[in-house]
Nucleic acid binder design. Structure first.
Lengths: 270, 270
DNA sequence: ATAATAGTGTCTATCAGACATTATCTG
DNA sequence: CAGATAATGTCTGATAGACACTATTAT
């Protein structure tokens, strides 16, 4: 058990004398695609931060920050998310690690991308703070990524197209974004959004992920709209209900009567 | 376009004077699960490296190494793979980034995990080199991960079980490994293998990934065996052929006659 | 009653899973 | 032709997709 190395040291002795070498070490950040529904479920919102420093000064960027020494990437993402929005205990999942040597013009910075899905899009600090944050309308179709906020007059548009790649002896298609508006997202944050959306839509097939954007108690019409917003296409009501039937249970209450006519049942996730 | 920051600098001026701050920066490595078929397709092999230094001295570990300053993680993984095995242009894909602060007892080291699938398991340097490498038999079932090499008398076994997690308001199950043999894998490499296999099996559903373990020209019985090895269960021949029918095209040759009776057609990926 | 949305019934084409049969090769 | 593997045929039950219908509420 107590092996010694070529210098005659045990593991304990080795670790006591170890000092990290002078390998060049990259900075590591987490960046997050944070999505929440509009209050009336008429669309999705994405959280962006306005950069106040070079590079990409005055560009909008995904929220994120450096990973501290004593925390995992997940913990860093959860911390940043809470600092920015107050949100905690929301769905938060690693997507991909972006590491092209020149993705940040300052120095070597790798970014571990996360996606977060929240049942709400709570107010964020806006106006003339040092760090300006805002929720933007978010549209992701087959050939277009459109992020805009009419209140502050910003529109960021990317055209999406598929490009063929080869990996081993297998070819496959990948989605790439091309800037179409005057404004752009900072760094490679367009790529982060594209990868996150692809992963998100794939995971909807075999997880309960859309439930994380619903309230604890929800109506089936609302849940269906969330599915439709995330998937980007509409669903047949009857088929949708069959699909989720064995994952939900009725609460026994009905929603508070709105302007509408018939009241819908409230359900919760089993 | 030419915005200046709070110090009155343009982006160009800012970058010229920029020096990376003294944030603590982690070391970043890539680690790879490299799988190849046995020559007779009777099983899978995994490539491991014997550690010659603390920590985990004399333990077997996934191949990998530090990401250099001028390369992406993908490039680092491809370089390490070629150095170790001579393999290039094989299927290579990022799996997950492991970042628990204490996953390496020396210092902060994050690992970006990759998986590689090769059509062959070429000889590697073994014996008494400083860096000893070897292919191990690889078995991954619902409840067991078993890695062994009878030539060198090593067996590493983990029991697999499912543990429930919560993410946002969604619960889901995850696979965890518990060491069952005297020998173990170094670091959290058991977790890396588990995550890689889960991702691999999921991706078989919607990609041509198993073709990357077949030769350019292959017979359908061979391709089916590869599918079965990767998925971990057997398939019905007729159903399998229907499933892959529209992705393959006949070469017009038959395989060189082996001991068997009828010769099978050769196909290639469309 | 009417308008509007909530919720259910049911048909069909497709497909995964299962098993049975035919075809082709060697000795 | 006997033995072995390659390749194809076909039945069945489940299910995704589509559309039509009934139910419940406020005014």
């Amino acid at each position: 058990m107590e092996y010694k190395d070529k210098n005659g040291l045990t593991e304990k002795e080795f670790l006591a004398q170890y000092s990290p070498g002078d390998y060049p070490r990259p900075s590591v950040t987490v960046d997050m695609m944070v999505l929440g529904p509009k209050k009336d479920y008429s669309g999705l919102k994405i959280l962006l931060i306005k950069r106040g420093a070079h590079p990409f000064i005055n560009c909008w960027a995904l929220p994120g920050g450096f990973v501290h020494e004593d925390e995992s990437c997940y913990e860093a993402a959860a911390r940043e998310l809470k600092e920015e929005t107050g949100l905690k205990n929301v769905f938060l999942e690693q997507v991909y690690t972006f590491s092209k040597p020149n993705r940040d013009p300052r120095t070597r910075v790798m970014s571990v991308a996360y996606m977060a899905l929240s049942p709400v899009a709570p107010p964020v600090r806006g106006g003339d703070d040092a760090l300006e944050a805002a929720w933007f309308d978010f549209e992701f179709t087959d050939n277009m990524l459109r992020i805009f906020n009419d209140d502050i007059g910003v529109e960021i548009v990317y055209q999406l197209s598929t490009k063929r790649f080869q990996n081993g002896n297998v070819r496959y298609a990948n989605t790439v974004a091309a800037q179409k508006s005057k404004s752009q997202l900072a760094f490679d944050h367009d790529e982060i959004i594209v990868e996150s959306m692809i992963k998100l839509r794939r995971e909807i097939e075999y997880t309960d992920l859309p439930f994380s954007m619903a309230n604890k108690e929800f109506t089936l019409p609302d849940l269906q709209v969330i599915y439709e917003l995330l998937l980007g296409h509409s669903l047949y009501k009857a088929n949708f209900r069959i699909m989720v039937a064995d994952r939900i249970e009725p609460v026994g209450k009905k929603e508070k009567s709105i302007v509408g006519r018939r009241m819908s049942e409230l359900y919760r996730l089993k």
